[in-house]
Design a protein around this nucleic acid. Sequence first.
DNA 1: CCGATTTACTTGAACTATCAACTTTCATGA
DNA 2: TCATGAAAGTTGATAGTTCAAGTAAATCGG
Lengths: 171, 171
Amino acid sequence: MKTAPESARADAPRWLTDEEQRVWRSYIEATTLLEDHLDRQLQRDAGMPHVYYGLLVKLAESPRRRLRMTELAKLAKITRSRLSHAVARLEKSGWVRREDCPSDKRGQFAVLTDEGYEVLSRHAPGHVEAVRQAVFDRLTPEQQKSLGEIMRIVAEGLEPSEAGADLPWLR
Amino acid sequence: MKTAPESARADAPRWLTDEEQRVWRSYIEATTLLEDHLDRQLQRDAGMPHVYYGLLVKLAESPRRRLRMTELAKLAKITRSRLSHAVARLEKSGWVRREDCPSDKRGQFAVLTDEGYEVLSRHAPGHVEAVRQAVFDRLTPEQQKSLGEIMRIVAEGLEPSEAGADLPWLR
DNA sequence: CCGATTTACTTGAACTATCAACTTTCATGA
DNA sequence: TCATGAAAGTTGATAGTTCAAGTAAATCGG
C-alpha cells in the first residue's frame, strides 16, 4: 500500500518533464522580455515604469478617478507598501494626489490629477500599439482566447487569500 | 483609396477590444502574481530572488558549470549590467565565482561553485513544486501545449536583435 | 465602555534594477 | 603598424522593491 503524497516536500520531487520544461522556459523568457520591453517603452515615452502606468489606468477607470489605497493595491496586485512608495513618486510627478477619506480617518484616496489623466491619454496609444505588436498581432484568435483562459486560471490560483488554502478545516 | 497604416503612430490608435482587454488584464495579473509568488518562495527558502535562481540553473546546465558573462546574460534575457551586479551578489553568497577567460583577456567566466550547486539541489524540489502547483497542475495538457506555443511566439518576437527589424532592407 | 485585535497606511533600511559612462582588450583595414 | 571602432565587462548614481516594524483609527467581545 502506497502512502498518499500528502506532504510533497518529503516525497520524490515531481520534476518537470522535458516538454513541461520547454513550456516553462518559454514562459520565463516571454514574460521577462515583454515586461522589460514595456517598461522601457513607457519609461522612455511617458517617464514611468509599466506598473505605475497600470496604477494610473485603474484610477482613470474608477468613479471620480479615485480609489482607496488598499483597493488600488488589490486591483493592481501589489502590496500596500509598494503602492505607498509608488504613489509618493506619482505625487511628486503631479499625476496623483492623496486625499483623506472622510468616513474613515485611517483611509486615503489616491486621486488621478488632470495632469495625470492628460499624460495617460497622451501615451495610451503608444502603449497599446506596443502591446499589440508584441502580443496580439502575433497570435491567432484561438491563441488569444486560450491565453486569456490560461492566465485567468493561473491568476485565480494565486489570488491572495486563496480562500483558506492553508486552513483546510475551513473549507 | 485608403492609406496603408504604415506609421501607426500617427493614425487612429488600434485600441484593444473588450475581449482583448480582458485577456491582457488576465495576463498582467497572472504574471505579476506568479513572479511575486516565486520570488517570495525562493527568497524565503533559498535566500535569493527568482532571477538569481535562474542564473544558477543556467550555470548548472552548462559544461564545466561555467558561462561567459555575455552568454549567460543572453540566456537569461537580462542586460550585462544587471548580470554584473547579480553575479557580484552571488559571489558574495559563495554560490558563484568569477574566472578569467584565458583566450580573451576582456572575458570573464561565471562559475557555479560546489556550494552553489548544493543550494540549487537542495531547493530545486521546492521550487518545481511551487511551479507545478501554480501552473501545470491547473492546466490541461492542451492548455500547457498552447501556453508553450504562445510564449514561444511572443518571446521570439521580442528577441533582442529582432533580426533587422529596423533594417527592413535587409529582410 | 474598555481592552484587545484588526485594519489602513506609512516608513526606513537593505536590496535589486536601470542607465549612461567608463576601461580594457580585440578586430579591422588601410 | 597604427588608428578606429566594436566588444566584454564593470561601475556609480538614481530609482524602484521588499520586508519588518511602526502609528493611528476602527472594530469586536465582553
